[in-house]
């Protein structure tokens, strides 16, 4: 068993740079969203398809990032 179709994509979400790492292990797709810097995992998700896992992780990350307060 190996991680297949390993991909990393970076984009902006709720004003924060976010990185989505996705791969398939067996029949399950995994997606993890982290906040690039410092690199902490914000959300994880699994799905039967690549799209399902990435969309779920992205939506969970969006909600959590939107709650981050900035003090300026």
């Amino acid at each position: 068993m190996k991680a297949e179709h390993f991909t990393v994509r970076q984009f902006e979400l709720s004003g924060w740079p976010v990185r989505i790492t996705s791969y398939r292990i067996g029949t399950t797709w995994h997606a993890k969203a982290d906040n690039v810097s410092p690199g902490a995992t914000i959300a994880t998700a699994t799905g039967e398809t690549h799209w399902e896992a990435v969309a779920d992780a992205t939506e969970k990350a969006r909600k959590r990032l939107a709650a981050t307060r900035r003090f300026r």
Binding site: W16, A33, N35, S37, P38, G39, A40, I42, A43, A61, R64, L65, T68, R69, R70, F71, R72
Partner: peptide, 28 residues
């Protein structure tokens, strides 16, 4: 001190900022 914890994670301190005299060299 712009944020109290890494974005997306719970805030676990009362004040933001750093210890006076510290240099910021992110681990990454």
């Amino acid at each position: 001190g712009e944020i109290l914890s890494p974005p997306g994670l719970p805030e676990t301190c009362q004040r933001g900022g750093h210890i006076p005299g510290a240099s910021n060299i992110p681990w990454v």
